[in-house]
Design a protein around this nucleic acid. Structure first.
Length: 594
RNA sequence: GGUUUCGUAGUUCAAUGGAUAGAAUAGGGCUUUCCUAAAGCUUUGAUGGAGGUUCGAUUCCUCUCGAAACUACCA
């Protein structure tokens, strides 16, 4: 049984027995490291019941616990704080109970809640950049965390494959592409399509400029520029099913998908379901009638349809234009309803940057007003933007950090550092390359995931490539140390991982700390799942690795006499498994040597 | 203008209303006859400002200053 739970039950008993008071909930916390003890009860809240001084109250409760709870070895009182010492035997037994078992329970309970996590959702007109990396890493990691916390997870990607943006690329390619293909140029498909998107923009800007010089307003110029008109024409043709346009569209999107696939593979993310907007963009129109009938939606004289959210502190939101066409919101309503029917999710998580907070607020509210019960299970995983030291990424200033380039750079830096330190000596080229990739991507992923998703983050390329301190490679290194120990132990003392674990009667303080850290994992995992925050896992695994690093530094393991060495190895092994498991929740691999 | 979010060491990040606000990095000073020094030890240094609630506030409330995002019949 969970020790906190047991102690808090006993504290309720103590309050009943000592002061005749019934208390509903007793909150415990971890003892501050500067004091002796493992678990702390703050007694200020009970003074009204005891009618005694804080010290006296705490001592009375402490005495009761020590007498009635075998696991409570001792206690001390400082002001209103009752610090409880849990016996070494309890911690040793706990370690024994998890030794040589999977650190994370992979089996899902029957009837596990179904959670759909949508993430990535790129546009097909340009390659993925740094912002997408945060999105992809977050979405993937949150999905893994929810899985580990006992949910049946469906990862989904909604590809924005249609619209004016891709038409711009198509048009520019027709005009200036000279039949270029990824094959003929050797350029990655998504990059090639992106190149023509930029090309369009260049010519378009010139046209706008010319029109402005001729006396048009900027607004007029932007709408009337011939290139924009042509792109619009192309979109109409696409919607009308024009064969040539559809063919070009399919071809160029095909190039992009091949490029995306390579980026996703390198990034290590995957999806259970891929949706395409070309197949979903008409959804949602059908519910307009329903909404009008229910009186939730209203029609304006010009025939456009809207919902009035001013009573909720929001604005009026148009859902159908006067010409009867739908807007993005309408589409999102439709896809949500479709998924609710198709997947029957308990929760649907949208991984989308916080610039769309308003959009999702409105989306969820409309679905609730339309009477869908499942709308309560919708969640916007809103994450902050990634900024560079010089400010926001701006495509026209060329400061956009390309996802592929960034990963390549991280891997190259890992390679250079490894070679410099002679860490790759004795590895085959394939092994060495795999190692560089593991370290480079580990650094990048950890750097991005250790920050609270809700907060905007600063991406400093120089610092992200650092391998010291609170970084992915530092954590990987401590895993590697464990593996080196285990390898050596197999040779020198025929260490056998199937041997039973026998703990010493008295644990070293650092050993106890490590076991307590391991013991806390389920709480940490649940918190990470509840808050949709990989950062909580990242901070946890860093703490664990740091704690182990000090233990390793201060205490020889293999040089000790056999029974001590055996226990320390088994503890190290357990820590290694824990590190690897936590890193996998972040989508980060660990090497066996580095 | 309105709505929302955010202001913590030089910098990048932590802290269910709890004890002396933790790390990392940068700067100062050390450690290698020791299982991987991609390590460890040590030192300097912070809650934007003013009130309030509380035994206790980085955390909750009000005001204020500063930053960002959103506020389309765009996606």
């Amino acid at each position: 049984m969970n020790i906190e739970k047991k102690i808090s039950e006993k504290i309720k008993e103590a309050l009943q027995s000592l002061y005749g008071a019934a208390v509903e909930k007793v909150a415990l916390e971890k003892t501050n490291p500067d004091f002796v003890g493992d678990i702390t009860l703050v007694v200020f809240g009970f003074l009204k019941l005891s009618k005694k001084k804080p010290e006296e109250t705490a001592t009375e409760i402490g005495n009761y616990l020590k007498a009635n709870v075998p696991e409570v070895a001792d206690f001390n009182v400082i002001k209103g704080f009752l610090n409880i010492v849990v016996s070494d035997a309890f911690w040793s037994d706990y370690l024994k109970s998890i030794y040589s078992k999977p650190f994370i329970n992979a089996a899902l309970p029957a009837g596990a809640p179904v959670v759909m996590v949508e993430y990535s959702s790129p546009n097909t007109n340009k390659p993925l950049h740094l912002g997408h990396i945060r999105n992809n890493l977050l979405g993937f990691s949150v999905a893994e965390i929810l899985k580990a916390a006992g949910n049946k997870v469906v990862k989904a990607n909604l590809v924005n494959d249609r619209g004016i943006h891709i038409c711009k690329s198509m048009l520019a390619w027709q005009k200036w592409g000279n039949g270029e293909t990824p094959e003929s140029t050797g350029i990655k498909g998504d990059k090639l399509v992106g190149k023509y998107y930029v090309e369009f923009d260049k010519h378009y800007k010139k046209e706008v400029e010319t029109l402005v010089q001729q006396g048009k307003t900027k607004d007029e110029a932007e709408k009337q520029a011939p290139l924009m008109q042509e792109a619009q024409q192309m979109l109409f043709k696409w919607e009308a099913g024009d064969k040539d346009v559809k063919e070009l569209w399919a071809t160029m999107n095909g190039w992009v998908y091949k490029g995306f696939e390579a980026t996703y593979k390198m990034l290590g993310v995957d999806f259970d379901k891929v949706y395409y907007e070309s197949q979903t963009y008409l959804l949602g129109k059908s519910i307009i009638e329903e909404g009008l009938a229910k009186g939730v939606l209203k029609r304006r004289p010009d025939n456009s349809v809207y919902i009035d959210l001013t009573a909720d502190g929001l604005d009026e939101k148009t859902l159908l234009r006067a010409d009867g066409t739908s807007v993005y919101m309408t589409q999102d309503l439709g896809t949500a309803i479709q998924r609710a029917e198709e997947v029957k999710f308990d929760r649907l998580v949208y991984t989308v940057a916080n610039e769309q907070d308003y959009h999702f607020k409105v989306l969820f509210l409309i679905l609730k007003k339309l009477g869908y019960k499942w709308a309560d299970g919708l969640y916007h995983l809103s994450y902050g933007m990634v900024e560079l030291p010089e400010g926001k990424m701006k495509s026209r200033e060329g400061t956009v950090v390309d996802a592929d380039d960034l990963m390549d750079e991280m891997i190259a830096t890992a390679a250079a550092t490894s070679k410099e330190l002679g860490k790759a000596d004795g590895l085959s080229e394939a092994e060495a390359n795999k190692l560089y990739q593991t370290i480079g991507l580990g650094a990048l992923k950890y750097f991005m995931l250790k920050v609270d998703p809700k907060k905007k983050m600063l991406f400093n390329p120089a610092e992200s490539i650092d391998f010291n301190g609170n970084t992915g490679p530092f954590i990987q290194f401590n895993y590697v140390r464990v593996q080196a120990l285990l390898r050596k132990a197999k040779d020198t003392m025929s260490f056998d991982t199937s041997a039973a674990l026998n703990a010493p009667a008295q644990l070293l303080p650092q050993e106890k700390e490590l076991i307590i850290k391991l013991y806390n994992f389920p709480v940490v995992l649940n918190q990470a799942a509840a808050e949709y925050s990989p950062a909580i896992i990242a901070n946890y695994v860093y703490d664990l690795a740091k704690e182990f690093s000090q233990y390793y530094h201060d205490n020889p393991i293999l040089k000790e006499k056999p029974e001590v060495a055996l226990f320390r190895l088994q503890l190290a092994q357990t820590v290694g498994v824990a590190i690897k498991s936590c890193m996998s929740l972040l989508g980060i691999e660990v090497p066996d040597r580095m």
